[in-house]
Design a protein around this nucleic acid. Structure first.
Length: 803
DNA sequence: GAGTTTGAAACT
DNA sequence: CAGTTTCAAACTC
C-alpha cells in the first residue's frame, strides 16, 4: 500500500509544493530542480522503516526515542547519509543533484541507516497525506531558504525535491508518523503561510534541524570517535561528505559551543546547505516528530556534551559546519565539546573500523559500507546497521545520555532544551511529539506526551532498569562524570543513583585483559578509561585492532554477544497501539533479559542475576531456580506483566504469608507458559517481549548485522526487528514470532512443552514445562495467561492488519 | 580492604 | 550439548 500511494502522494505533494509561491521562489533560487525520488527508496524506506519502529519499540523504552531518533536521524541522516555514504555524494554534489535518493539507497547497508532516517522523515512528510507533505515541504523550502542563506534556497529546494521523492517512497513505511504528520501538516501549512516571514521560525526549525544534525553529528562523532578529535577533523574536514560535514559541524558546534559562532563554514555552502536542507527537510518533513527528534538529539547532544565534558575536556575537533552552527548556534552554544568523552566511552568498535574505512574514502560512506559488509552478510542486517550506528552512539550513549542529560543536563542544556521546546512548541503538534526528556521540560513533555501519547513519549525508564542501554548510557556518563576513584564506590554510587549506575562501567579485570565479556567495559562496547582498575588492559584505543579482532571473534561465536542483554518491549507495544500494554511496557517487567539468567542461589534478587541487575523480570528464557525477581518472575511472562506482576506480587505475598510459593509458582508458571505463548501473539507487548527475546534467545544468531554493530546492543534488538519491512517491524516481529514461536505457538501452547519452550523453557524448569501443555487446555484458571493466549492467537493476525 | 559468593563467560 | 573451569562482579565481614 505504501509504495503506490506514496508515489501518488509524492506527486501530489510535489505538485502542490510546486504550486506554492514559496516553492517557485525556491526553484528560482536553486539551480537544481527537485527530482522525484525513486521508488527504490521505498523499498529501503520500507525496510528501514519497519525495522526501525519495531526495533525501537521493542527494545527499550528509549527505543521509542531512538526510533524517533532514527527517524530524526533519518532526517538528519539523509543528509548525513547522503553526505556520508552515498549521500555524501548527494549532499556534496549539490551540483549533481547528489540527492539521488537512489544512490543513497544503493548502498543497502547505508541505505538501512539512511533509509531509516530518511524514511522516517520522508515518511512523515509524505505519509501525512499530500497536505501534510505539502506543508512539510514548504516549510522545508522556507527553512532552507531562511536557514542557510549562504546555501541559498536552491540547494535546499533541490534537496527538498529529492527528499520529497524519497519521502514519497518511504512514506508508506512510516505509517505511524503519518498521523503525526497530518497533524503537523496543519501546522506546517501555517508555517508555509507564514513562510517567508517566518525566518525566525526557520531559525527555530533550523535549530531543530540542527538538533537532528547534532544527533547525527553525534553519530558521526561516535563513528569517528576512536580517532578522536583527529578523526573528527579528518572526517569532517577531509572526507566529510557534505552530510557528514554537516553533521560534524553540528556536532562540533555543539561540542565547541560554536561559540565562535561564526558562520565560517562557507565551504559547506553548497554542501552544507544541502545538508542543512536535508536537515531542514528532515525537520520539515516531520515537524512534530522532527521537533521531538531534535529534542532528543539535543538531549543526546547535551548528554554527549556533558559526558564529553565530564570525560574529556578534550576538544572536539575542529568545527566544520559553522554555518549550520550559526543558525543553531544559539541552542548549541551551550553544548561544549563533550563529544569526545562520548566518543571515548562509546566506542563502537565497529565504528572504529568504520572510521578507518571512512578515512580511506568517504567517511560516512565507508562507515556505512563496512557496516554493510558485515550486515551484508545478512539481508536484514542493513536495517540493523542503522540501529547499530545509532545504537552505539545514540542508544547507548545517546539514550543513556539523553536520559542522563535530561536529568543531569546542565542548566545550559536545559536552557537549550527549553529553547528547543519553546521552538517546537511553536509548532503545535510536532512540538507535542517531542519527547524531550524529563528534565526541565517536564511540563512541556507532559503536554507533549499527552499529545503524542505514544511510546516515544514514554521517555525512558530511566528510573528503572533499562538494562544495558540505560546502563551503558549511564555508564558513559558516569564514567565521565564521576571519576570516582574506586570503581566499587563509583558503582555503588551509580547504583544509588539508580540503575543507570550500571551504566558506568568500570571494570576491574585482572586476567582477561578487558578483552572478554567478563569485562563490563568490553562487553558494553566501550574502551576502558581511567576509572577502571583493570590490569594489562587492552581495551583501549591504542589497541583498537586487538579489540576489534577480539570482538569479532566473540561475535563469530555469538553474534548477540554484544547485543543488549535486556530487551524492552515498550516500543513495540505502543506501535501496536495497545495502551494498556504500553503502560505495562513501561514497567520493568515489560523488558526481558535476552538470554535469561541461570541463578540458583541468589533467587534473582541480587545483582548476580542479570535480569535483576538489568531491572527486568525473569522470563521463560531464564533457568533460574527459586526465582523471586522483584521485577517479574519467570512465569510472569512479561506479556501481561502488569497482571503477572500483580500476581507475582500476590504470590509473593502469599509466600510471605505462608502460602506455598511453589503452588503459586506453578500457577505463575502456567501463566507464564501461557503468557509466553500468548504473550508473543496476543498483545503487542506480550508478543513483543517474547518475540524479541524469542528470536534472539531462541534463535539467537539471527542478527548478525547487529553483531557487527557491536556495542549497539539495544539497537541490535531493534535492528532485528527492523529488518523486516518498514512498517512491518512489528509484523516482522510477528513473523518472527510466528516463524519461531508463533506458528509453533499454537502447538507449543497446547502441546509443546511450553510456549517458552519454543523459545527456551528448557529443562531447568521442567516444572514449568509440564504445565504449559496443560496450560492452554488445562487450566488456566486464572491467569490472564489464557486471555492472553486466546487473544494472542487472534491478535497476531490482527496486529498486522492493523498496521 | 580482604575475603567469599555468585553466576556468566569461556573452555573442554 | 553438557560439564567444568575461569573470571570478575557482587556481596559480606
Amino acid at each position: 500500500m505504501d509504495t503506490p500511494e506514496k508515489a501518488t502522494q509524492i506527486a501530489t505533494p510535489l505538485s502542490k509544493f510546486e504550486d506554492s509561491p514559496v516553492f517557485n521562489y525556491i526553484n528560482s533560487l536553486s539551480p537544481i530542480k527537485p527530482v522525484k525520488s525513486i521508488p527504490i527508496t521505498q523499498t529501503f524506506n520500507s525496510l528501514n522503516f519497519s525495522s526501525l519502529p519495531s526495533i525501537f519499540t521493542s527494545p527499550h523504552v528509549i527505543a521509542h526515542r531512538e526510533t524517533r531518533f532514527l527517524k530524526r536521524n533519518n532526517c538528519s541522516d539523509p543528509s548525513k547519509a547522503g553526505s556520508c555514504s552515498e549521500n555524501g555524494n548527494k549532499v556534496c554534489t549539490d551540483d549533481g543533484v547528489a540527492m539521488d535518493a537512489s544512490q543513497l539507497y544503493d548502498n543497502s547497508a547505508q541505505l538501512q541507516e539512511n533509509f531509516d532516517t530518511g524514511v522516517s522523515i520522508e515518511e512523515d512528510s509524505v505519509e501525512p497525506s499530500s497536505d501534510s507533505k505539502f506543508v512539510i515541504e514548504l516549510p522545508r523550502a522556507l527553512k532552507y531558504d531562511c536557514g542557510s542563506p549562504g546555501c541559498s534556497s536552491t540547494p535546499c529546494s533541490v534537496i527538498e525535491a529529492n527528499y520529497v521523492s524519497e519521502q514519497a517512497g518511504t512514506s508508506a513505511s512510516v505509517v505511524p508518523f503519518v498521523e503525526k504528520d497530518s497533524e503537523n501538516g496543519s501546522f506546517e501549512d501555517e508555517v508555509h503561510l507564514q513562510g517567508a516571514s517566518q525566518i525566525g521560525q526557520k531559525k527555530e526549525e533550523v535549530g531543530c534541524d540542527w538538533e537532528s544534525l547534532i544527533s547525527d553529528a553525534q553519530d558521526l562523532l561516535i563513528f569517528h570517535y576512536p580517532n578522536e578529535s583527529e578523526a573528527f577533523k579528518g572526517l569532517i574536514q577531509k572526507s566529510m561528505d557534505p552530510g557528514a560535514r554537516f553533521c560534524t559541524s553540528l556536532v562540533t558546534q555543539f561540542s565547541q559551543n560554536d561559540l565562535s559562532g561564526e558562520p565560517e563554514l562557507q565551504m559547506v555552502d553548497s554542501v552544507g546547505c544541502s545538508q542543512q536542507h536535508e536537515m531542514m527537510e528532515g525537520r520539515s518533513a516531520q515537524p512534530g516528530e522532527t521537533s521531538e527528534l531534535k529534542e532528543i538529539n539535543e538531549i543526546e547532544d547535551n548528554l554527549a556534551n556533558d559526558d564529553l565534558n565530564n570525560c574529556l575536556t578534550g576538544n572536539p575537533s575542529e568545527d566544520v559546519g559553522d554555518e549550520v552552527g550559526v543558525c543553531v548556534q544559539d541552542a548549541f552554544k551551550r553544548v561544549p565539546t563533550l563529544h569526545r568523552g562520548m566518543l571515548r566511552r562509546c566506542l563502537d568498535f565497529e565504528r572504529v573500523a568504520r572510521r578507518k574505512n571512512l578515512n580511506d574514502g568517504s567517511n560516512c560512506s565507508s562507515i556505512i559500507l563496512q557496516s554493510n559488509d558485515k550486515i551484508a552478510s545478512e539481508d536484514n542486517q542493513l536495517v540493523p546497521l542503522i540501529p547499530n550506528s545509532d545504537s552505539p552512539r545514540c542508544i547507548l550513549p545517546g539514550i543513556g545520555l539523553h536520559l542522563n542529560a535530561l536529568t543531569l543536563a546542565s542548566q545550559d542544556n536545559k536552557n537549550f532544551k527549553l529553547e528547543i521546546f519553546s521552538r517546537q512548541l511553536s509548532f503545535p503538534t510536532s512540538t507535542a511529539s517531542i519527547h524531550s526528556p524529563e528534565s526541565g521540560q517536564e511540563p512541556v513533555q507532559e503536554s507533549l506526551t499527552s499529545a503524542a501519547a505514544e511510546g516515544d513519549m514514554v521517555p525512558v525508564d530511566d528510573g528503572v532498569p533499562l538494562a544495558e542501554d540505560a546502563s551503558q548510557t549511564s555508564s558513559y556518563l558516569v564514567g565521565e562524570e564521576s571519576n570516582l576513584n574506586s570503581p566499587k564506590k563509583k558503582r555503588r554510587r551509580m547504583e544509588l543513583a539508580g540503575e543507570s549506575e550500571s551504566a558506568c562501567k568500570r571494570c576491574n579485570c585482572k586476567k582477561s585483559k578487558c578483552l572478554k565479556l567478563y569485562c563490563e567495559c568490553f562487553a558494553a562496547g566501550v574502551y576502558c578509561i581511567e576509572p577502571c582498575s583493570c590490569q594489562d588492559c587492552f581495551n583501549k584505543p591504542i589497541h583498537e585492532d586487538t579489540v576489534l579482532a577480539t570482538r569479532k571473534q566473540i561475535e563469530s561465536r555469538n553474534p548477540l554477544a554484544f547485543a543488549p542483554k535486556v530487551i524492552r518491549n515498550s516500543d513495540s507495544v505502543p506501535e501496536h497501539g495497545l495502551p494498556l500494554q504500553d503502560e505495562s511496557s513501561k514497567t520493568p517487567a515489560s523488558a526481558r533479559h535476552k538470554r535469561g539468567c541461570n541463578c540458583k542461589k541468589s533467587s534473582c534478587l541480587k545483582k548476580y542475576c542479570e535480569c535483576y541487575q538489568g531491572g527486568v523480570g525473569c522470563s521463560i528464557n531464564c533457568r533460574c531456580e527459586g526465582c523471586k525477581n522483584t521485577f517479574g518472575r519467570k512465569d510472569g511472562s512479561a506479556i501481561i506483566e502488569t497482571e503477572a506482576e500483580q500476581e507475582e506480587e500476590e504470590s509473593e505475598m502469599c509466600e510471605k504469608s505462608g502460602v506455598d510459593p511453589i503452588l503459586q509458582r506453578t500457577e505463575i508458571s502456567n501463566n507464564e507458559e501461557q503468557n509466553p505463548g500468548s504473550a508473543l501473539p496476543t498483545t503487542p507487548l506480550q508478543f513483543s517481549r517474547p518475540l524479541v527475546q524469542l528470536p534472539f534467545s531462541s534463535k539467537f544468531k539471527p542478527p548478525r548485522s547487529l553483531l557487527s554493530i557491536g556495542s549497539s546492543n539495544a539497537f541490535y534488538t531493534g535492528l532485528n526487528y527492523g529488518k523486516p519491512s518498514i512498517l512491518r517491524s512489528q509484523p516482522k516481529f510477528e513473523k518472527r514470532l510466528q516463524t519461531a514461536p508463533e506458528e509453533e505457538m499454537p502447538e507449543i501452547l497446547r502441546g509443546n512443552s511450553s510456549p517458552g519452550s519454543g523459545v527456551k523453557t528448557v529443562s531447568p524448569n521442567s516444572k514449568r514445562v509440564s504445565p504449559p501443555n496443560n496450560v492452554l487446555g488445562s487450566s488456566p484458571s486464572r491467569r490472564s495467561g489464557r486471555k492472553l493466549i486466546l487473544q494472542s492467537i487472534p491478535s497476531f493476525p490482527s496486529l498486522t492488519p492493523q498496521h
